[in-house]
Nucleic acid binder design. Sequence first.
DNA 1: TTGAAAGCGTTACCAA
DNA 2: TTGGTAACGCTTTCAA
Lengths: 336, 336
Amino acid sequence: MVARSSRVTIHDVARAAGVSVSTVSKALNDTGRMASETREKIKSIAADVGFRPNALARSLLFNRSFTVGLLTNDTYGRFTLPLMSGISEALVDHGVSVFLCAIEDDPELAKVHVDAMLDKQVDGIIATGKRIDRSLPVDLAGLPVPVVYAFTEGVPGSVVLTADDADGARLAVERLRKVGRRKIVHVTGPDSFVSAVERADAFRQAVGAGAVVMHGTWTEGWGHEAVALLWDDEKPTPDGIFCGNDQIARGVVDALRERGVRVPEDVSIVGFDNWEIFADQTRPALTTVDMNLKELGRTAGLTILDLAEGRSVEAGLRKLPCKLVVRQSCGGDREI
Amino acid sequence: MVARSSRVTIHDVARAAGVSVSTVSKALNDTGRMASETREKIKSIAADVGFRPNALARSLLFNRSFTVGLLTNDTYGRFTLPLMSGISEALVDHGVSVFLCAIEDDPELAKVHVDAMLDKQVDGIIATGKRIDRSLPVDLAGLPVPVVYAFTEGVPGSVVLTADDADGARLAVERLRKVGRRKIVHVTGPDSFVSAVERADAFRQAVGAGAVVMHGTWTEGWGHEAVALLWDDEKPTPDGIFCGNDQIARGVVDALRERGVRVPEDVSIVGFDNWEIFADQTRPALTTVDMNLKELGRTAGLTILDLAEGRSVEAGLRKLPCKLVVRQSCGGDREI
DNA sequence: TTGAAAGCGTTACCAA
DNA sequence: TTGGTAACGCTTTCAA
């Protein structure tokens, strides 16, 4: 047995207006030719009875569901949420909604979700994760819908969007230089992360000969440890530290305070990520690199839309610029 | 003009199997009567050609989209993500997908999203937010689909799910008592939050006469300040502090360390939220109350499903129990 | 045991 | 200017 809808259909509008269903359709969609009087009358009646077309029926007809899937294994949502927000913002104007699927690192679960999305005829899938050099635990190649990878590894020949790590590193060094820092070191995460390596390379290039890069973990603890290594040494201490993320920066700032080293008077600190919960609560608040994840999301959304609507998009890795968010940890925030 | 699907339809299966469309449907759905040989043969052919029924078509027919909407104004996702994860986990087994809509505090945007969800015939809507005593900027009453409120204020007569704040407070005090603490104070957020008040009331009841509750902001800074107030006083200092969230707890722990007060040897600390990024990184790691948001999400998902499938659900506010996550800041983690 | 036909709600084509 | 009809992909009823 088939359930009955309790909602207002186009038939109801047609009956109320005393015209045919096709006339109503044409009136509401501003298609076809008809007396503008009739059109207006129908529109007003439709509004009165609260008619809204059933998107499922239209989707079936157009073979477009106005729906995209967002697949993520970033459980904690550090990257997914801003991305999601950008995607949604870009697509809502086009009437497109977003299915969010959290797949952890479970290939089975991932497959279930992908199948569910395909069954529901999503117009495209955006894949995202925690790092650019790891792929999701599911093969998205050869799907009957377009796929865009954002902040996760894509298959060869696919469209991949990510933040420009080198650009971020350059922004950080540039800022440290601008406030007069000359002995700058980089304290960052493991060199098994492509992001860490790209930032480190750009850092070395910007700082020049003798650039010091310290790889560790992405934690506050490593920030403390790095400060101990730098200050318990005989060598001269740095006057600027570029940290690979805001957690490390937080650790560095706390460790320096405990040693009586003033931030930003004695040492300037720049973080990475602009994770506001850390950046704002650190004393002093962190000047940090923002990866523009929301903008990345917006771009991903528009790209998947282009693809879904048959416009061609250049394949390959596209790096979007970062921006620097100035707070107090670097100094110069008042003068500049 | 109407676009053509490039996917395998039931017609393709019928053609390949040399039977009619209706026979294929019956075979695959295990309905109707037919030679089990035929049925198996059709099933195998369907699998071979990779047939998956178009969910849109079925939805249109059944008037069930196997889709629910999750509406949130919790931009930062502190509460939304675990909730979402629970919802998704509970519903994926039922073939239900989740539309996530972030609406900030924009009523216009909220309406756009709600309309989009209704157009897409969602089977129900779960509304969630940042606090139980504020409602979303959109009226969800009188919608043609069921609504469940989770962690946000609902309209009278609706189904509202939330964490049991009093239970959380009791768990915290119980733990502090268990490790031998006798002079316990509660440092928490503003008394304009119902959650803060409910926890404080339960705290007072558990601790008894002379219970000290200090209201402030939900920040690390307030944690520092509270410690200053408590320790710069002439009065005897507490040996246990129950904090209203993990950020306050972090501030308290840091402030105590700076004063040379040992945690947990001299003072035991219990936080609230189990926000892992704070709880884990605090030294010592925080023993804290977990609101079981994932479980709350699971319950919300199953509840909306009940409603969508016509089963009746008791209206009103339902409080789900919290749990204590033991780390090192309270002590007793090894003995007990 | 199988298949033709109607119908879910909508849009588009063509005839009136 | 308007309306009948077919079609989107599927399930179900009813007839063969």
